[in-house]
C-alpha cells in the first residue's frame, strides 16, 4: 500500500480521530522503527499521524511524586531531567542504550514499547519500575501497566484508533533504585541479545524489601519474573538468594535461536545480567557499604 497522507494533528483528539478513521494509519513519534520498516517494506502504513506537534506530548512533568513522560519525548531528553535521573536511573540508562546518539535524539520510550520487540531496551526497565502507560482512544483514556502493551513480537494490545500518549513512572520509594544491562556483541548499535532490568528497595539494614526483575529478548515479550523478585525479598543479597533469583530468571526464559543469539546463551546470560543488574541497583539504592 502506498503512503498517501501525512497528518500533523495538534490535539490528542484529532490524532485519535485520524487513527480511528484509517486503520492503515500509523502514529509517528521518533520514527526510528517505523521509518525503517516503511523503507524496507515491512510496514505498509497508508498514512502517517505525526504526534510530535501535539501540545504536551513532548516533555516530562511530575505527577505527585511520580513522572509523566510524553509519548513524543526523545530518549536523550530523559537524561536532561535531573529528578528523573535521580529517581529512575535504570530507566534512563535503558532508553539511552537504544541505537546511537542520532537515533536516541529521535527515538521515544513509547515508540520502543509500541514497536513490541521483545528486545526493546527500555521495556524491561519500565516493567521493573512498575511503569504504566496512558492510552487515548475513541472511547476515552485508559491506563495499563506497560507489560500489557506488547502481546507478541510486533503485536500490541492497542485497539483500533488507540495510541499511547504518555508513560508514567511511580514515586521512587525510599531506599530504592533501579538498573538495566543488556548483552550485545559490540559496545553500541546492536539489538539486545538479552536484557535485564531490576528495581529494588533496601531497608536500613541492607535487607531487600522489594524487588522487580524483568527480562528482555528471552521470550516473545518482555517478562516480569515475579519469582526472581520473591527470591530476593527478605534477603541481604547473599549468594544463595542471588542464585535463587538468577535461577528463577533462567526458568522464566523461553528464547529462540536466531542470528543474534542461541537459546542456551540467552538463558545463561539472562541469569548473569540479572545478577549484575541487581547488584548495580542495590549499590545505587545505598544497600552496599
Amino acid at each position: 500500500m502506498a503512503l498517501s497522507a501525512f497528518h500533523t494533528p495538534e490535539t490528542i483528539e484529532q490524532a485519535v480521530a485520524l487513527l480511528a478513521g484509517d486503520p492503515s494509519a500509523r502514529p509517528l513519534s521518533g520514527g526510528t522503527d517505523l521509518i525503517v520498516q516503511m523503507q524496507s517494506g515491512r510496514s505498509e502504513a497508508g498514512a502517517i499521524v505525526d504526534i510530535k506537534r501535539i501540545a504536551g506530548l513532548n516533555g516530562i512533568r511530575s505527577d505527585g511524586d511520580g513522572f509523566v513522560i510524553g509519548a513524543a519525548t526523545p530518549c536523550t531528553a530523559l537524561k536532561e531531567d535531573a529528578a528523573l535521573v535521580a529517581a529512575w536511573p535504570g530507566v534512563v540508562e535503558a532508553a539511552n542504550l537504544i541505537g546511537s546518539v542520532q537515533v536516541r535524539n529521535r527515538a521515544t520510550m513509547a515508540g520502543n514499547l509500541c514497536n513490541a520487540s521483545p528486545a526493546a531496551d527500555s521495556v524491561p526497565a519500565l516493567v521493573a519500575a512498575g511503569a504504566t502507560c496512558l492510552i487515548a482512544g475513541p472511547s476515552g483514556e485508559r491506563e495499563v501497566p506497560v507489560e500489557a502493551i506488547p502481546v507478541a513480537p510486533s503485536k500490541t494490545s492497542l485497539q483500533a484508533g488507540e495510541m499511547v500518549t504518555a508513560i508514567k513512572l511511580p514515586k521512587r520509594s525510599a531506599g530504592g533504585s533501579d538498573a538495566y544491562l543488556r548483552s550485545i556483541p559490540r559496545t553500541e548499535m546492536d539489538i539486545a541479545v538479552v536484557g535485564a532490568g531490576a528495581n529494588i528497595t533496601v531497608d536500613a539494614e541492607g535487607v531487600c524489601t522489594s524487588a522487580r526483575i524483568a527480562i528482555g529478548a528471552a521470550a516473545p515479550t518482555v517478562v516480569l519474573v515475579e519469582d526472581a523478585g520473591k527470591a530476593l525479598e527478605g534477603s541481604g543479597f547473599d549468594d544463595a538468594a542471588m542464585e535463587a533469583m538468577a535461577q528463577a530468571v533462567r526458568n522464566a526464559c523461553k528464547p529462540i535461536d536466531d542470528k543474534r543469539g542461541t537459546i542456551e546463551y540467552r538463558i545463561a546470560m539472562a541469569g548473569v545480567l540479572a545478577k549484575r543488574t541487581v547488584m548495580i541497583a542495590r549499590e545505587r539504592a545505598g544497600g552496599t557499604a
Binding site: 521509518i35 523503507q39 526523545p74 542520532q102 535524539n105 529521535r106
Partner: peptide, 16 residues
C-alpha cells in the same frame, strides 16, 4: 542537525 540535535536524516520524514 534538526532543531539543534543531531539525527539521521534517513530516519526523518521530509514532511516533518
Amino acid at each position: 542537525m534538526l532543531d539543534g540535535e543531531m539525527v539521521c536524516s534517513c530516519l526523518v520524514m521530509a514532511a516533518e
